[in-house]
Design a protein around this nucleic acid. Structure first.
Lengths: 157, 157
DNA sequence: TATTGTTATACTCTATAACTATA
DNA sequence: TATAGTTATAGAGTATAACAATA
């Protein structure tokens, strides 16, 4: 008879035994996002605010572009940026060419905060992968990248 | 000179090039959770409601246990279960031994819905991993499981 | 007319503090 | 006293629809 299905989509705690690929990936995402959320919470940041700051590190997108990048409605982005701007993490600057649009920029404070969150998060990842050999790690990095690439290509919006 | 840091913590869209392990894992989690969220949304479910149903497939936990499993305050769980119960996805049943506590059970409707979400989600994972060989997949499954195990062990609550 | 962004509104999700009932 | 759960409250995050300003 088939082995009973266990722990599918479930969070980490019991996390025992043999997982199929889907369950392993699902559990991994909950575990990693949980780590990131905790690190962000130390700076009073939600996951979405953290993601916002992360995205802004190498971009100055318009509100519309931000909506697409974060997969949110533009009205949701308005509120997100309102709250981030109140905390001096980001700034709205008028767009030079189109007077309807604004660009969103990280402030130096925002950049400092996201750096701290990323640094702490990197430590969590280091700990969680500490038992892997260098070639295991590179293998995981490579496989993960391939999955991301395929996922992006098949993205149905 | 060092290569410029790109796409860290960012969502999938551009997702190009060489990612370090942390960035690869972070991007993967956003991509996979995005897939799951979209599949859940087809059934008008949020990610946390989906996770709730997933957890309940092989458990009938008390509210307190559920709070620990989902890493939420007990008062948050009250609201979560209230809304799920209104939709006939779960049911509160009195605990047999302790008259203070209740156990939460999946209804047949809830079980049907979570099955459908998982089935659709599995297809997304299949597509995203379609270019991997069988041994690649098993390798990814194994490495991922090891990371989850280590992460769980180091979990600081 | 179409696009960019905001506002008004309603709902989900979350935590904190105070409460009730039971242990 | 301690624990299980709910309630009251406040705020973040989200989408839909309607709106103003600009293209």
């Amino acid at each position: 008879m088939p082995a009973p299905t266990r722990e599918q989509l479930a969070p980490a705690p019991p996390a025992t035994g043999d997982l199929n690929l889907m369950d392993a990936l699902a559990q991994l995402t909950f575990a990693i996002q949980g780590s990131l959320a905790k690190r962000a919470a130390h700076h009073d940041l939600s996951l979405i605010q953290t993601r916002l700051l992360g995205v802004l590190r190498d971009r100055q997108p318009t509100m519309q572009e931000l909506a697409r990048l974060l997969d949110l409605d533009k009205s949701s982005v308005t509120g997100l940026i309102d709250r981030a701007e109140l905390r001096r993490l980001v700034r709205r600057v008028p767009s030079s060419d189109d007077r309807r649009s604004v660009r969103v920029k990280l402030t130096s404070r925002g950049r400092r905060v996201i750096r701290q969150v990323v640094t702490a998060f990197r430590l969590d990842i280091d700990v969680a992968t500490a038992s892997l050999t260098s070639s295991d790690k590179d293998n995981l990095r490579s496989l993960t990248t391939r999955v991301i690439t395929a996922h992006t290509a098949h993205r149905q919006d």
